[in-house]
Simulated assay, not measured.
Amino acid sequence: MARYTGPACKLCRREGMKLFLKGERCFKDKCAFDRRPFPPGQHGRMRNKPPIGYAAQLREKEKVKRIYGVLEKQFRKYYEMASRKKGVTGELLLQFLERRLDNVVYRLGFATSRRQARQLVNHGHILVDGRKVDIPSYLVKEGQVIEVKEKSRKIPSIEESIKTAKGRGIPEWLELKPEEFKGVVKSLPKRADITLDINEQLIIELYSK
């Protein structure tokens, strides 16, 4: 299955919550979800029953995949990694997703959306411990320093994003140094650091069948 390239706002409406896929637009009055908070399509207004059973598990998985911009094969790989590790599988799954470099770039405020962050990483604008890393799925470790390459610091979208980063909120497990276009991974993310409405247990139940 190829990566989705259609209207991002339709995904928020389909999942019944803001996935923050459009950056700053999601915080403004133009947000499509605020104007039409029902599923897209001819019969969207009539779909008011919450899914149950398998349908609920499938919707939760699709929602999380869309939030982090991950396709099925890679998402399954994260589940298998989490299931082999000691600890709560659902929380470990979310931890792996949070540790992705594109997500960390977004969380630090270098980009206003994960899609934009993925593009910055792909184009070589991001350094990890002083070395260029252009793999969005790279998993950051505790103590690593994430920064914008010096030549890239004058890119308007990065400058604007940094200015509004603190207003959007920086997670406790990360530290931002805006003047230096730099961030530090203070610790690995905990479940409490992920404030989005996610029920990871439904995903584990789906994959455990």
Score class of each variant (00 low, 15 high):
Gly167Asn: 09
Phe96Pro: 00
Thr5Gln: 14
Arg107Ala: 09
His125Cys: 05
Leu196Ala: 09
Leu108Asp: 01
Asp193Asn: 03
Pro39Cys: 09
Phe33Leu: 14
Tyr138Cys: 08
Gln57Ala: 09
Thr112Asn: 13
Arg3Val: 15
Arg114Asn: 01
Leu71Trp: 14
Pro37Gln: 06
His123Arg: 08
Arg14Lys: 15
Val185Glu: 02
Asp102Trp: 01
Met46Glu: 15
Ala2Gly: 07
Gly109Lys: 12
Ile126Gln: 00
Arg36Thr: 08
Pro136Cys: 11
Arg45Thr: 13
Arg100Gly: 04
Gly183Ile: 00
Val133Trp: 05
Gly44Leu: 03
Lys73Glu: 14
Arg36Lys: 11
Val185Ala: 00
Val185Asp: 01
Leu97Ile: 06
Gly169Leu: 05
Leu58Glu: 09
Ile162Gln: 03
Gly23Trp: 07
Tyr54Leu: 13
Asn48Lys: 14
Leu11Phe: 10
Gly23Cys: 07
Val140Cys: 10
Pro40Lys: 08
Gln42Gly: 12
Glu60Phe: 08
Arg153Phe: 11
Ile52Asp: 06
Glu180Asn: 00
Pro7His: 11
Phe75Leu: 13
Asp134Glu: 14
Tyr106Asp: 02
Arg191Met: 05
Ser161Gln: 08
Gly23Phe: 06
Glu62Leu: 09
Lys18Phe: 02
Lys61Trp: 04
Tyr79His: 15
Ser113Pro: 03
Asn199Ile: 04
Gly183Trp: 01
Glu15Asn: 14
Ala82Asn: 11
Leu176Tyr: 04
Lys18Cys: 08
Ser187Ala: 08
Leu97Pro: 05
Asn122Gly: 07
Glu24Pro: 02
Glu62Ala: 10
Pro156Asn: 09
Ile162Val: 15
Asp134Ser: 15
Lys30Met: 04
Val128Trp: 02
Cys26Ala: 01
Lys154Asn: 15
